[in-house]
Amino acid sequence: MLKDITLGQYYQTESLIHRLDPRVKLVGTICYIISLFLVNKIQGYVIALIFLAIIIRLSKVPFKFMVKGMKAILFLLLLTVVFNLFLTPGETLISIWKLTITKEGVRVAMLMAVRLSFLIIGSSVMTLTTTPNHLTDGMEKLLNPLRKLKVPVHEISMMMSIALRFIPILMEETDKIMKAQIARGADFESGNLIKKAKALVPLLVPLFISAFRRANDLAMAMEARCYRGGEFRTKMKPLIYQRADRLAYLILIIYLVICFLAGR
């Protein structure tokens, strides 16, 4: 059942990376992304690659799941590469018609491609090894200092986890209503755009009503258990840094220093 209430992203397995505190993973991912954009020598990227490879190995998540994330941004990646390739001014390498490829262009394009792919793979490691609930927990704890500035940190993270929790439920609901309407002869596939949009009314109206009903029920259930927001709220499983987490931070700092020294 548990796999049903998390997003499709999470890959359930037992590993060192899975067990890390979500805050470590969040901070680690952010630092890793920053490091990718600070270095600009090939040595820096080699180190970033080795670091990433070790993390993936430790996470025990099959590599094909990481590549899945890449597919979604393939178009964006190609676009950036092409634009950088042709539009960077500098020493001309090849010139075809009005398009010129420059030496700098090749360099920048490759740099961007590497940066973007590392960025995507790096952040998928985080989402693949952390459940959405853990992630929002970690985010709440990390953003806690903002509370002094009257930012409703707890409420934001609560909203996020409820939203994530409801995605699979609403998907199931959509499937059910769709089938019920198809059984009544509804047609969601044929016709032009306007006809298709109109055909969605019998799907969307019940879906919205059901979403409101569920939200209402949930609010009632939360209130019945005396939920009243973040103030004075304690946690059943509070996030506490363990030895492994401190060690992970140390490794992260060492990585950042090496990367910085080698890559600048």
Partner: peptide, 12 residues
Amino acid sequence: GLVFQYPEHQLF
């Protein structure tokens, strides 16, 4: 004709 479980959820 198929009437699903809780068919009232399909009214619109």
